[in-house]
Design a protein around this nucleic acid. Structure first.
Length: 360
DNA sequence: AACTCGGGGCC
DNA sequence: GGCCCAGAGTT
C-alpha cells in the first residue's frame, strides 16, 4: 500500500529563488530558434516538438517544419503524409496529428489564430497543462505556470520535496505553488528560466552543477548535501518483449510498403511487411502470396532489436525478391526507392532493414 | 491511477 | 543496459 501524505512544499524557498533565477536566465539563456520570435504559432510548434524530446533533437525538425508550414493555415491544410514525413524520427506521432487537428479548429473557429487564454488553449487537442501554460506565458506573458520534467526536478531539489515527481498529484501541487508566485514576476521569463536551469545546471543525469547555479544559496537539497537524493522517483515499470518478423519485398525497382493502422503504435506510418512472431521461411512465402507477390527467392536478414518506452521488439527479417502486379490489400503499395526517401514516413524501428537494402 | 505512445543521448 | 527528456490522450 502506498502511503498518502499531504504534499507540503517549502514555498518561501521558491519565492526567494525567483529573482536570482530570472536574472541568471537573462544573461545565460541559450539562443534557441524559437526564442527569436514572438509568433505564438512558432512557439506552439516548438513546445509540441519539445514534449519528451531534447532541445538538440528538435532544432533541425523545427527549422524544417516552420519553413514548410509557416502559418496555421498551411498546417491546417497540409497532406497527412507530408506532415508525418516532417515528423519522421521525432516519435510520439500523435503529436503531429493533434497539431494539425488543433490548427484546423483555429482556422474554422478562431479566425486562423490560437485562442488567447490558457483555458481556451487547454481545450485544443495536444494542449495539456504544460503546453497551454508555455504558450500563454511565453507568447503572451500571461501569469500561468508551465510545469515540465525540468521544473519538477528543479523544484524538487530546491525544496527537498519527498514526493514522487512523476505522480500527477505532485505535479498539481507544484503547479499550484507556482501559481501563487508567478504574479510577482515576468511569467514567460520565469517559466523559461526554470526549464533552462533544469536543462543546463540542475541536470537529470549526472551531478548537478551547483557551483554555477544562481539558486544554490536557497536550495534545500544543497544545504543538506543531498542533491543526489532528489528528485524522488517511483520504481520503474517493466517492458514487455514482442517478437516480430520483418519481410522486405523487392519488386523490380520498388519495395513493398504497408501503411499501418490509424490507431495504436506508429499509427499511419509506413513499414515493410511486419508480422507478429518469429516466422519460418515457408510461412513468409505464404504471407507474400496473400499480399499478391510471386516469390522468386528468399534470404535471411540480420536480426534486430528496437526499444520503445514500454515495448521491446525482437525482430528477424527476410529479404524477398519477387514480382507482383495486383495488390489485394488497399494499404499495400509498391514504392520506388526515391519515393521512400522523400514521401513515405518510416519509423526508426525499421532502420536496420532500411540500411540493409541501401535505403538509409 | 495506470497505460499507451518514439526515439535518442547520456551515464 | 537503464535513465529521462520543455507530456498528452485513453481507459
Amino acid at each position: 500500500m502506498k502511503e498518502k501524505r499531504p504534499i507540503l512544499i517549502d514555498a518561501p524557498r521558491v519565492g526567494r529563488s525567483i529573482e536570482p533565477l530570472c536574472g541568471w536566465y537573462q544573461k545565460h539563456a541559450r539562443k534557441l530558434p524559437w526564442r527569436q520570435t514572438n509568433d505564438s504559432y512558432a512557439i506552439w510548434v516548438s513546445e509540441v516538438m519539445l514534449q519528451q524530446t531534447r532541445v538538440e533533437a528538435v532544432i533541425p525538425y523545427y527549422e524544417r517544419f516552420m519553413t514548410a508550414l509557416p502559418t496555421i493555415e498551411a498546417l491546417a491544410e497540409v497532406d497527412d503524409d507530408v506532415l508525418l514525413k516532417l515528423w519522421e524520427g521525432l516519435g510520439y506521432y500523435s503529436r503531429a496529428r493533434n497539431l494539425k487537428k488543433a490548427a484546423q479548429i483555429c482556422a474554422v473557429q478562431y479566425g486562423g489564430r490560437l485562442p488567447g487564454s490558457y483555458t481556451e488553449l487547454l481545450k485544443l487537442p495536444g494542449f495539456g497543462p504544460y503546453t497551454a501554460g508555455a504558450v500563454a506565458s511565453i507568447a503572451w506573458n500571461l501569469p500561468v505556470p508551465a510545469v515540465d520534467g525540468n521544473v519538477m526536478r528543479v523544484i524538487s531539489r530546491i525544496t527537498a520535496l519527498e514526493h514522487d515527481i512523476k505522480d500527477p498529484a505532485t505535479v498539481r501541487a507544484v503547479r499550484e505553488l507556482l501559481c501563487g508566485v508567478i504574479e510577482a514576476s515576468e511569467p514567460g521569463i520565469l517559466n523559461q528560466a526554470l526549464m533552462e536551469l533544469g536543462a543546463c545546471i540542475c541536470v537529470p543525469n549526472g551531478a548537478p552543477r551547483c557551483h554555477e547555479c544562481p539558486v544554490s544559496a536557497h536550495c534545500a537539497a544543497r544545504e543538506n548535501g543531498q542533491t543526489e537524493l532528489f528528485p524522488v522517483k517511483a520504481p520503474k515499470k517493466q517492458r514487455r518483449i514482442e517478437e516480430k518478423t520483418v519481410i522486405v519485398v523487392c519488386v523490380d525497382d520498388g519495395v513493398l510498403l504497408c501503411k499501418r493502422e490509424s490507431k495504436g503504435l506508429l499509427a499511419n506510418l509506413y513499414s515493410f511487411l511486419c508480422e507478429d512472431g518469429h516466422l519460418t521461411k515457408e510461412t513468409v512465402i505464404d504471407i507474400c502470396k496473400q499480399h499478391g507477390i510471386t516469390v522468386e527467392s528468399v534470404s535471411e536478414m540480420k536480426p534486430a532489436k528496437h526499444i520503445f518506452t514500454h515495448i521491446e521488439w525482437h525482430m528477424i527479417g527476410y529479404l524477398v525478391q519477387g514480382t507482383g502486379k495486383t495488390l489485394p490489400y488497399e494499404n499495400d503499395i509498391i514504392a520506388a526507392r526515391h519515393q521512400i526517401r522523400t514521401a513515405y514516413s518510416i519509423p526508426r524501428a525499421f532502420a536496420s532493414y532500411q540500411k540493409e537494402i541501401g535505403l538509409l
